[in-house]
Amino acid sequence: MVHNRPSKTLVSAGVLVYLFLYIPLAVVVIFSFNDSKLNAEWVGFTWKWYEKLIHNENILRAAGNSLIIAIISAAMATVLGTLAGLAIHRGRQKWLPALVLGPIAMPDILIGVSLLLMFILLNVSLGSVSIILAHVSFCIGFVALAVQSRLAGMDQSLIEAARDLGASPWQSFRLISLPLLMPGIIAGALMAFTLSIDDFVITFFTAGVGSSTLPLEIYSMVKIAVTPEVNAVSTLLMLVTLTLITVLSKISPTVLRQ
């Protein structure tokens, strides 16, 4: 029965990999409280980079922009993704999965440049609207997956029972399927929100000059110089994602593993 426990070698190798995963993030967080312009050695504790952040209008505007874009994209992607998930589950359109999951399989840069090409050729001005249109197109698939995995585990006989008892298709959907699907839909919506607010690559190509999001702002900051202000934004961003993940795992523990 040796194989039920990991051996000592295995555990130490595993711990090393965990350290590899966490040390870089810990470095970012620790230096966000460091009283030195250089991210090199510990000088003393300070809040000043966070204070500086609160007065940085570019960052604040970009963060607000990111939030609005993420909310609208997530809402649109949730509606379209739920429909897609339901349709894929019924499996009448054989080509639908390829269309819905295609954007997930493609490298981000390809989605970014092809949308840039289309927007410019069709004279769509680049800005918040083009960013939202782009975000929705890659979020639909993730929502569809979340909804579909929920559908796969659903007891079909409940719906049949409702129909037998005289419920119309719409009634059985609204009263039985929809409440049962809700955890999947909410998980999908939160995932779309996180993906949208985190996205850098696709936003980079579809943003144009006028509008900026938080990741774009961080990119232009780190392009110029490594400053502890970036550490402070990053730390706050980690805190936000951590909160979202906690909520997500409470609602649907399985969805995180996809």
């Binding site: 993030l25 990741p215 490594v226 970036v230 994602t241």
Partner: peptide, 17 residues
């Protein structure tokens, strides 16, 4: 999964430091 949910640029930035 946790570190993988922190922003992509933040994870690159960590290695810049």
């Amino acid at each position: 999964i946790l570190p993988f949910w922190s922003n992509f640029l933040v994870r690159i930035y960590a290695w810049m430091i």
